[in-house]
Design a protein around this nucleic acid. Structure first.
Lengths: 189, 189
DNA sequence: AAATAAAATGACTGATTAATCACTTATCAA
DNA sequence: TTGATAAGTGATTAATCAGTCATTTTATTT
């Protein structure tokens, strides 16, 4: 087993899955594009399902590394949430394949095998720090779970918007505006 | 051909597709559950793909009927958007299977065959009236397409939240709060 | 009641698939 | 050089699936 080859298989498969979906991407095509045999593919990943989930885990680990850099304890709630906002969106824009894969995986039946799992635990802390910042004063503070869904959805929408409209002149300005829109909603008058 | 049987097939297939996804629901199972033969199924819908899309069209037509009732010309922007907000969410909560199907279809490759299509045109007017109400004054008014995505995502999140958390005591109160959260974001200070 | 048309049936086909496994090739320590 | 282990191969297998079609059943007309 060779870690570089493993990553190579994961990346090749991710691109093909993004292009054709999980069920329309036969293992034979993945092997062909990765220039290995089907047998080798199944040496590295015992089942197609495990391959699909291994990609998810890899992408999650990769994205988490980027996000954690941007959390600072001493900053204000506004600044912390804003820098998180920018970091998450920029990661998606810089890694569109990974971003697309996360969206596809999350809206597929495979995600169910991941509910209440380790990978989500580290994100949990991330989420808790968002809630600590927002919940006490925000509109909707009775529904913290909804607040998280709401932020998550807006983050995804903003990222998708940039990826699908690459003609946007000033991406940073858009990101700031999208943050203001959501932040503005939170602050009680 | 019998319209009642056609609807029966559509409803049966919708439930199975929701349970197992498009690719893990063989036509044979749909026929079995609908208590017809595979042959009959293919008499009504020449291909599986056409069945999948026929369900989408049917659900869209059904949902549109409900929404249109709630638009009033004489009301204020706030009241109009709020009553739209309530109507859309309540439709989803009252029709969870249909709602789930729309979400699944929209995040599947089948949706691509529907971009720039008639079914979306009637929704287009709906969207335009939202933009007319919001864009001129709102934060993010430079990005009207994003505003629509943002509202759409929030609507879906709120609906999903209610469906997945049926213990919520006062659903109306939650819907109002979720609307305030988003409306509050729009209004410039 | 007989003739005709329409609707329904389900065993079957051909294509595709994930996964296997008997075999070959590469690696490397003794 | 040898022998042992690990890595890689791809034809093959067994299963599944969308879609077909010759036949039967039901409905309608004459």
């Amino acid at each position: 087993m060779n870690e570089k080859k493993r990553i190579h298989i994961l990346e090749t498969a991710m691109v093909l899955f993004n292009q054709n979906g999980f069920d329309s991407t036969p293992t034979s095509k993945i092997a062909k594009k990765a220039k290995i045999s089907v047998g080798t593919l199944f040496n590295y990943f015992p089942t197609k399902s495990e391959l699909i989930q291994a990609i998810y885990v890899e992408v999650k680990i990769h994205s988490r590394k980027t996000f954690l850099i941007h959390l600072k304890d001493n900053a204000s709630e506004h600044d912390n949430l804003q820098s998180m906002w920018k970091a998450v969106i920029n990661w998606g824009v810089d890694n569109p394949e990974e971003f697309k894969y996360l969206e596809m995986f999350s809206s597929s039946p495979y995600i169910n095998q991941f509910k209440n799992e380790k990978t989500l635990e580290t994100y949990q802390k991330f989420r808790e720090s968002i809630l600590e910042a927002l919940s006490p004063t925000s509109i909707c503070n009775e529904y913290p779970k909804y607040l998280l869904m709401y932020i998550d959805n807006a983050l995804h929408a903003a990222t998708r918007y940039i990826i699908n409209n690459q003609h946007i002149h000033n991406v940073d300005h858009f990101i700031n505006q999208s943050f203001d829109l959501i932040w503005h909603g939170f602050v009680k008058k």
